[in-house]
Write a protein that binds this DNA or RNA. Structure first.
Lengths: 151, 151
DNA sequence: ACTCGTGCCGAATAGTGTGCGGCTCCGGCG
DNA sequence: CGCCGGAGCCGCACACTATTCGGCACGAGT
């Protein structure tokens, strides 16, 4: 994981579809060298994949929210089951098992406020292990797609 | 945004680096047709970009957390300033402006628990507009990289 | 029936990915 | 000090790919 690897990672985070030649030229190395590095990064698990970034509105998802959920009892089995159930739902974009007052943070993405409400009462309230939840509608968000190594 | 467009979006969310030919063959259309569709999706803003998915551990980020922040006063100026300041920090992966008890949700990614603590006391406590915060360490997470249109 | 517009296709060309042999650099060791 | 071995980078050649463009088919409107 030297300077060249970091640079490759940085570039591919920003634009995963630039040609290998362009990437190599930008970093000042030969295409073959660059290709070999990229393949090693893949093999080592540093690069886990390449994904298109899609506008949620185009998929009819105009409302996003975080739902904090408290489970009862917070046992391994309950947590795993809930996590799997949530993740399987199309409205759910991400699931986080967290420490603190709440046990879960579920990132949901739905067409409308009505759909959010339906989701909450049909998919959460209905589940016995849900001891309580609180939802935070997202007004604005900014995600980073480039992360540098720390330290 | 017909069935073919949706299929293209689905495929490119899963693997943004597959060749146009492979994509076309998988969807049963000619490569030239497929290419034209992809370009239109780009132009329409449906496809916003292509990003490599990088293992955070490889970038020396072994601890992730959500930090909920309450601001004082929650005015537009304070919110915008805080958002920009947070987003500029390398430890911050995402910033969400939310409704509810808290005003912000900051997704941070750091090398260690010590680094998280340092971040909290050096970057948050220090800021005057921060009226309070609560951090939730992420034990486990699952993100989806494929989202289908809803309804 | 005719025309126009839209979208798809297939072929041709320019450009790209990929494997491989050889080169250079550098550290270890006699 | 000279030699050896390995690692990493390079450039070339070939197969494959992206991209452009003219043409065709289909459906709507007149």
């Amino acid at each position: 994981m030297d300077e060249l690897d970091s640079a490759i990672v940085r570039e591919l985070q920003q634009d995963a579809r630039q040609t290998n030649r362009a990437l190599a030229h930008r970093l000042g190395v030969a295409p073959s060298t660059c290709l070999e590095r990229v393949r090693l990064l893949h093999r080592r698990g540093v690069i886990r994949g390449y994904h298109a970034d899609i506008d949620p509105a185009a998929l009819n998802r105009r409302v996003e929210a975080f739902v904090s959920v408290q489970l009862r009892p917070p046992s391994r089995q309950v947590i795993e089951g809930f996590k799997a159930a949530m993740f399987a739902l199309p409205q759910v974009m991400a699931v986080y098992v967290v420490a603190g007052e709440q046990d879960f943070l579920v990132h949901v993405s739905v067409p409308s406020l009505d759909a959010l409400h339906s989701f909450l009462i049909d998919r959460l309230t209905q589940r016995r292990e849900v001891a309580g939840f609180r939802s935070q509608i997202i007004y604005d968000s900014a995600r980073k797609n480039v992360a540098a190594p720390l330290e």
